[in-house]
Simulated scan of single mutants.
Amino acid sequence: QDIVATGELLNIRNGVLSARVAAVSSALAVAVSQAAQDESAIDRKGLGVPIRWKDGSAGALHVLPLRPGRGAFDASVVAAVFVARADTPFVAPTALVAALFGLTPAEARVFEQIAAGRTVEETSDALNIGRSTVRTHLLRLFE
């Protein structure tokens, strides 16, 4: 919302997210359209659209497909768009991902550890749970 409010990079017109730069806006529209029509077209990993802020710093828009019926969101929403600067370490939006995909608190904790780059063993140790439990939660997360 803050990024849209500044109008520097993205804006929303008539309920449609678009970018300040025409080429980025086109790529974003294609990614969202693919997410709406056939999420397999952009895979589970989503689609990254390279961007530049006005100050010249690089980043990416990460478009991830959403399926209605999973989590608490409006059925008209077809994709989540995450904005990341290249020079900022990634911090997983755990609460958002948990809400969107209906994760249990335990699954959300495992997601947060794995998204931070930790291995199954490191996650097991950090959360004080068995490795097989981490793997079970991972199976659900990939599902």
Score class of each variant (00 low, 15 high):
G130H: 09
R44A: 15
S124Q: 07
A27G: 03
A75V: 07
R20P: 00
P89N: 09
K54A: 12
I114V: 14
E8C: 02
V4K: 13
D38A: 15
L100S: 07
F82I: 12
V120F: 10
L138A: 06
S124D: 04
V83E: 10
H62K: 06
E143Y: 09
P89V: 10
S40Y: 01
A5G: 12
E8L: 06
V16D: 05
P68R: 03
A75R: 12
T104N: 01
P105L: 00
A80K: 11
R118L: 04
L17G: 03
V91D: 05
V91A: 14
H137P: 04
A23E: 13
S33Q: 13
Q113C: 13
A126D: 07
G59L: 02
A22D: 11
L9C: 01
A23V: 04
G117K: 02
A72D: 12
A58N: 09
A98G: 13
I114W: 05
R135T: 13
E107V: 07
T119E: 08
V81H: 02
A99K: 12
Q34F: 10
L28Y: 01
L66W: 02
A19C: 02
L138F: 05
L9Y: 00
V83W: 10
T119A: 03
F73G: 08
V81T: 02
F111H: 15
A60M: 03
V91H: 11
K45F: 12
I129Q: 11
A106K: 11
D87H: 15
A115C: 10
A79W: 02
S40I: 05
H62L: 14
L61P: 07
L9T: 00
G15M: 02
P105Y: 00
I12C: 15
V30Q: 04
F90V: 14
L139I: 05
S76M: 11
L10Y: 01
G48R: 07
K45Q: 11
D87A: 14
T123N: 07
F82S: 09
I129Y: 08
A31M: 00
P50I: 03
L127P: 02
F90R: 09
P50F: 01
G69Y: 02
G117L: 09
S25T: 00
S124K: 04
A36F: 03
Q1P: 09
A80I: 08
A92D: 14
G102P: 08
A86M: 05
A75E: 06
G56E: 10
N14Q: 14
A84G: 08
G130Q: 10
A79C: 12
L100Q: 12
F82L: 15
P65E: 01
L64P: 06
R70T: 08
A5Y: 11
Q1S: 13
N11T: 04
R52V: 08
L47F: 05
L138M: 10
V83M: 09
A79M: 00
E107K: 00
A58S: 04
D74T: 09
T123F: 10
